[in-house]
């Protein structure tokens, strides 16, 4: 059973459709108790860093998310759900992130075409569990204006004006900057890899 966090801003339809397609059972929650009880957790994200973190605080689930991440249960952040794992973001400098990983999320430079929107190739690190058997030259779908720095936990990079973190993996904490739910068969495979962990 996968627990999907609904903090109120994003549209969860495509994540739900994807989980249904790979044959996973799931439920959607806004409650700290259900997050604590989750066997596997997905934190999808779309929108604004500041709004998202404020919504997590308003729902009183920030601490539950941090506890879950540290519990060893598989935890996947998608897009803004990955960015939220860092300490802060240039999108809302006053707002604290979850702080699971060191560093700050930054904006692509002003002279770049932005958002970075479309298919781009990622370069996986060997042994990345989320990216098992995805084949050569993996292209996935991105839609974002802010990017996560490359850190020790980076499991795949993408290049758009610079190298940045496309996939993050540390123990059972995972994050993807792209949208696996919009990345065709490859995206389904990545979600399936997470479901089968």
């Amino acid at each position: 059973m996968i627990t999907v966090v609904n903090y109120g801003a994003g549209n969860l339809r495509s994540v739900e459709n994807t989980l249904a397609e790979v044959g996973a059972t799931y439920h959607v929650t806004q409650s700290a108790a259900e997050i604590d009880a989750a066997a596997k957790l997905i934190l999808p994200g779309v929108g604004h860093f500041g709004q998202m973190l404020r919504a997590l605080d308003d729902l009183g689930i920030r601490e539950a998310l941090i506890r879950k991440a540290k519990s060893g249960a598989p935890f996947l952040g998608i897009c803004l759900g990955l960015q939220a794992m860092f300490e802060s973001s240039a999108e809302a400098p006053e707002q604290k992130g979850l702080g699971l990983f060191p560093g700050s999320v930054d904006r692509f430079p002003q002279d770049a075409r932005c958002p970075h929107m479309g298919w781009n190739e990622i370069v996986p690190r060997e042994g990345a569990r989320l990216l098992r058997n995805i084949g050569p030259k993996p292209y996935v779908y991105f839609a974002h204006s802010y990017y996560c720095p490359v850190i020790d936990a980076t499991a795949a990079t993408c290049h758009y004006t610079r190298h940045y973190t496309a996939v993050l993996e540390s123990g059972n904490i995972f994050g993807v900057q792209f949208h696996p739910e919009k990345s065709g068969p490859l995206g389904l495979k990545i979600i399936k890899n997470f479901v089968e962990l």
Partner: peptide, 8 residues
């Protein structure tokens, strides 16, 4: 469409 096609 969204239930069977997983692209934007």
């Amino acid at each position: 469409t969204a239930r069977q096609v997983f692209i934007p």
